[in-house]
Nucleic acid binder design. Structure first.
Lengths: 109, 109
DNA sequence: AACCTTCATCGTAATATTGCAATATTATGG
DNA sequence: CCATAATATTGCAATATTACGATGAAGGTT
């Protein structure tokens, strides 16, 4: 069916899954890494940086904006993107908490 | 097209994206959380825990096994699953490294 | 042997994602 | 106003994902 039964799971589980989904494409990882590196913002250099069509990059940017990981400010005819520090920290904390469990080394059963 | 152009990106970027993809479904998050909590392994209690059909759970377990996050050992007619501590730590470290960048608070441009 | 339990796999249906060309939108400069 | 530049949106094609019923394989029980 391709449709996730979100009703079966807790809000936290759906949250983590949605965050992971936002990161589940190398182009979006590349965009985020580039923004982290350049610190300040960029316009459509991203289209040159990555080798994808402008329409495709725009779509990925839209998704990242939708989950709040990046923000864009209009800069004349172009748009300047940068990491949204607040959401970035939220992601970091949620994944931290998720992975911060002591796993037994004993193996199965 | 639905097909990711992995060739355009670095191995690290594809790795992170693939790891994120493994976590990009609440059922898989629920499975992992349950395994972390119960510590020792389980059989198909997972089918009862989550409200999904046996075939569906089996598919999710297969995906988690494929990326190495869990492992299963045969236990008579049932199979005992548990977290693979090694891969778990790898995931933890990769996400740690990814998010461990100082983000400027300055906003865009 | 016949039977049951447990899990994996196959086939199928519905929906989601990725990617791009074409087109629309918005702002700037002449 | 017109042309240009930078993004966004639309529409489409190809592939991927999610979910489940049905079936199959393997091990146990009687």
């Amino acid at each position: 069916m391709g449709v996730t039964k979100t009703g079966l799971f807790t809000k936290q589980q759906n949250d983590i899954a949605n965050m992971a989904k936002a990161l589940a494409h190398p182009a979006r990882i590349a965009i985020l890494q580039h923004l982290v590196k350049i610190n300040a913002c960029i316009g459509g250099d991203l289209v040159e940086e990555l080798g994808l069509a402008q329409a495709t990059i725009s779509q990925h940017l839209k998704e990242l904006k939708a989950v709040g990981l990046i923000q864009g400010t209009v800069e004349g005819t172009s748009i300047c993107y940068c990491i949204n520090p607040k959401t970035w920290m939220q992601y970091r904390n949620l994944f931290d908490k998720f992975f911060d469990s002591s796993i037994s080394e004993g193996g199965c059963c």
